[in-house]
C-alpha cells in the first residue's frame, strides 16, 4: 500500500456505517424514515425533523459539480505538492458533499460537470470517496 500522508477521518459510532461502506466501494447517505429527507454528513439524529436513528441508503454515486476551486497553496501534508481540485459535489439525491475531482486535468473541471464516485484505499480501514468525470 502506498504511504498515505493526507489527513484521515476519525470513525465514530454514528459514522461507522459510512466508512464501512466506503471500504466496500459503496457510498451510503442517510435518509430519514420519518420525514423522508436526505442528509449529509452522517449524524446520529435526523437534523431535518429531529428524530433519532435516520436510516441509510446507497447513493447512486452520480452527481454534478456545484462549485469548485483549484487550490495552489495548502501546507497540509498530502496537499502541499501542486494544484488539486476541491469541489462541492451535489449528489443525485440532492445533498452536497466536499470532495476532490480526480482523474482529470484541473483545467477541465467546470460547474455543472457530471461526475461519479470512485474510491481510493488509504488504509486497511479507510477508503476515501472521490469523484471523477462521469464515464
Amino acid at each position: 500500500m502506498p504511504d498515505w500522508n493526507k489527513p484521515l477521518p476519525t470513525v465514530v459510532g454514528e459514522t461507522r456505517a459510512y466508512w464501512d461502506a466506503c471500504r466496500r466501494g459503496q457510498l451510503l447517505i442517510q435518509h430519514c424514515g420519518q420525514c423522508g429527507e436526505y442528509q449529509f454528513y452522517p449524524r446520529g439524529i435526523c437534523a431535518h425533523c429531529w428524530t433519532e436513528n435516520p436510516g441509510w441508503v446507497a447513493a447512486s454515486g452520480k452527481g454534478t459539480v456545484w462549485t469548485y476551486t483549484v487550490t495552489y497553496q495548502n501546507r497540509t501534508p498530502g496537499f502541499d505538492q501542486g494544484p488539486y481540485v476541491l469541489a462541492l459535489v451535489e449528489l443525485e439525491e440532492g445533498v452536497r458533499m466536499f470532495s476532490n475531482i480526480v482523474e482529470c486535468d484541473p483545467r477541465e473541471v467546470s460547474i455543472g460537470m457530471a461526475v461519479e464516485v470512485t474510491f481510493q484505499r488509504a488504509t486497511d480501514q479507510i477508503s476515501v470517496p472521490y469523484f471523477k468525470p462521469a464515464g
Binding site: 493526507k6 489527513p7 484521515l8 477521518p9 476519525t10 476551486t69 487550490t71 495548502n74 470532495s99 476532490n100
Partner: peptide, 20 residues
C-alpha cells in the same frame, strides 16, 4: 463526530472555501 472528518481529508483550506 464533526464535519471535519468529511472535509479535512479533501484538503479544505479557508481560502479554498471562500474561493468556491
Amino acid at each position: 463526530p464533526s464535519p471535519d472528518s468529511f472535509e479535512e481529508l479533501y484538503g479544505l483550506t479557508t481560502v479554498g472555501l471562500y474561493a468556491m
